[in-house]
Amino acid sequence: MSRMTALIGKELVDQRRNPMLFMPVVIVALVAIMLPLMVAIIIPRLTDEKLSDSSDIEVAFEMYRDQPALLTLDPEGAIQAFIFQYFLLIFMLVPVTCAMSVAANSIVGEKQSRALEPLLATPITTMELLGAKVLGSLLPSIGMSVACMAFYLLLVLLLAQPGVAWAILGPRSLGVVFLLGPLAALAALQLAVCVSSRVNDARTAQQLGVTVILPIVGLFISQLMGAFKLTGPVILAIAGGLVIVNAALMALAVRLFDRETILTRWK
C-alpha cells in the first residue's frame, strides 16, 4: 500500500507541475456550467421572456412531482430547476475528460521517458502500479467533478430563483456526480490505459479515448428527445451498465498492464 501511495503522490505532483493537462477539462467544465445557465437564466433575461410561459412547464412539473422541494418553487424556479437537472448528464464529461487526459499523459509520458522499466525493477507489483495509475488519475477527476458541481451550485444559488439550488441538490444530482461521474471516469481511464499501451503519443491516446464521451452525449440527446428521464432507477441502470463496462475494461487493462507485456510488447 505504501508503494502505491508513493506512486500516487508522484502522479499528483506531476499533475500539479503540468497544469496545461487540465485545459481540456476546464473547457468542458465551462461548457457544462455555462450551457444550462445560458438556457435557464441568461437568454430569458436577454430576451425578457419567462421560461414559465413555455409549455415545458408541464414537463418540469411532471418530472419533479416526486420531489417535495419543487412544490415550494414558483413556476419560473421550477422550470429553471428542471433545466439545471436536465443538463447534469453533461457534468459526467468533466471527470471523463480529466481521467482520459491525466491517464493518457501519465502512461504515455512514462513510456516516452522510458521510466517504466526502472519502476518495474522495484518491488512494486503490477497490480500496485496499475492501481496507482488508476487512483492517481481518478482522484483528480473526482476532485474536478466535485469542484465543478460546487461552482455550478454556487452560480445557481446566486443567479437562479430562490430555492432552485436546494431543489436540484437531491439524490439525482448526487447520483450523477458521485456515482455516474466516477464510474464513467474509471471507464475512461481504463480505456486510456488500454489505448496508451498501443500508442506513443498522449494526444493520440486522448483522441482515441475521447470515444468514451459519445455514449454520454448520446444519453444527453436521448434525454432531450424525451427517450427517458433521469430518475433514480435510470441512474442506477446506467451505473449498472458502467460497472459491466468497467469490469470488461479492467480485465483488458490488467492483461495489457502485465509486467512482461509492458517490457516486451509496449512500443
Partner: peptide, 26 residues
Amino acid sequence: FLTEAPGLWDSLTVRENLEIYARLYE
C-alpha cells in the same frame, strides 16, 4: 537495476525522483 535509459521523471526534481524510489523500496 540500472536500465539502459536513465528513465527519470522530468517533472520531478532529482531529490523527488530519489525520494519516490526510496519509498517504493520501503
